[in-house]
Design a protein around this nucleic acid. Structure first.
Lengths: 249, 249
DNA sequence: ATACAAAATGACGTAACGTCAATTTCAAGT
DNA sequence: ACTTGAAATTGACGTTACGTCATTTTGTAT
């Protein structure tokens, strides 16, 4: 028989928690002193461990109470149900994670931001979730849809996406130096090569994407990350410049 | 200006929720009728959408209130913090998912189960989480540790693991028919082939694993799923029978 | 004017404790 | 036996984001 203090020492569980478990009938002390101090035995400590474990796998105290009370509890079914629940929750968090990464990337692209811009981004996001796929499937054929998967999807966390964002952000930063500046041309070169790597010679496909990018409305419908018109225009000119120079050799 | 009923119609948000948002100062109605009925305008509806969105990405109402109130809120930092929090939560759920799958598989192996067995499994689990890796690294060298990754890890959900579990479960089921029964020998054959596929000719390594399996204590320390001694013994005999027959041809 | 729908306020309940506050008990030292 | 300080007790309120009554008031159609 050990005191409540000993329990907290051995398990890290607080006194309040032990009192609470007693109160809700989840775990009563084995005995009490004359004065009413709680005393716990070996059995209780084991049960406490079980409770802790069942808590870590996401069961509520009420559920745990019922499970431990029922001699013939169907653990298999219970655990499968719990697994289903946990899996769903996990998927929800994965969704959220993707959305957050998307928003963060967009802010990285646009620089920090006032309430108004965030409102616009949020609206864009909500639209996209509903419409993006529909819109894209309408424009691209099946084969191209697969290629689209390779597009830097702003929700994703892969280094591919990050490099695109970094490249565009750098482009914006050095825009004032003009399209022929060596910094710019180095960036464009990298982008050109990346494009080749990703889409190969699929000219027509790349054209379609440019077409979408050039129209803010289309761009919004497609859920591409918003590059402002100025940057887009600058990029296009710098790109042409690069290609022309390249073909001169 | 629309009534609260209109709001619920358009958004699906309940009256209670609107009242609550009003109460905590998150979203006041634009105006009230003489009698005190709430009226909402365009601005409020937009704000409501933003609130909904920020809720879906996991912010609390208090946080949302502060974010929307602060003209110069640092969205970038806030979102990154939130991402960190969400990612952690997601990892926690992944952990739980693995544990649950593990427990479910063990129950599949052992048939359904009383409180006592579950207590033992839980204890085994808690031990494993702490000790398993340490113990295994002590016995196996680095190369072998990599091979160990191919071992049916009971926490995992892949078809490999599932087949091992199914095979052993079938073995148990038909055990009464003796080691030479054709059902048994077919199962053993499949297991033998799977073993070859997975570990190739790495005899020594397979020996070590058998050594661990044969000792309940070691098996427990290593966190292998618990196969009872009887089944293990039966398997061994059936296996020897199979190999002998095979080498006779 | 009446009746009925819709809205209002107020209150309690939820889950799993944390955090006071006021009082009582325990164990040790004198 | 007495004192004292630490430890334990009960009780109560706070937390989140509403749901769910119960009761009263307002709006609107006839």
């Amino acid at each position: 028989m050990i005191s409540i203090k000993e329990v907290t020492k051995q398990t890290g569980i607080t006194v309040r928690t032990m009192r609470y478990y007693d109160q809700i009938g989840l775990l009563h002390p084995a005995d009490k002193t004359e004065g009413g101090h709680r005393l716990y035995g070996e059995k209780e400590m084991k049960k406490l461990q079980e409770i802790q474990f069942l808590k870590t796998i996401g069961f509520s105290l009420q559920e745990i109470k019922e499970m431990l009370a029922d001699e013939n509890h169907d653990w298999f079914t219970g655990l499968k149900k719990q697994l289903g629940y946990i899996s769903k929750e996990k998927e929800r968090l994965e969704q959220i994670e993707g959305t957050l990464r998307g928003l963060i990337n967009e802010i990285m692209l646009n620089g920090n931001i006032d309430l108004f811009s965030v409102q616009k981004l949020i609206q864009l996001y909500q639209q996209n979730m509903d419409k993006r796929e529909g819109y894209l499937n309408q424009i691209f054929n099946e084969e191209e849809s697969k290629l689209l998967q390779n597009l830097p999807n702003i929700n994703r966390d892969d280094p591919e996406t990050l490099e695109w964002i970094a490249l565009i952000a750098q482009l914006k930063k050095h825009m004032s130096k003009g399209i022929s500046a060596p910094e710019i041309q180095r960036l464009i070169k990298r982008m050109y090569e990346k494009e080749q790597e990703t889409f190969g010679d699929n000219k027509e496909f790349v054209e379609k994407i440019w077409d979408i990018r050039k129209s803010p409305q289309k761009s919004e419908s497609a859920g591409f990350y918003p590059i402002d018109a100025e940057t887009l225009d600058f990029f296009e000119k710098a790109y042409e410049f690069y290609v022309k120079k390249k073909s001169n050799f």
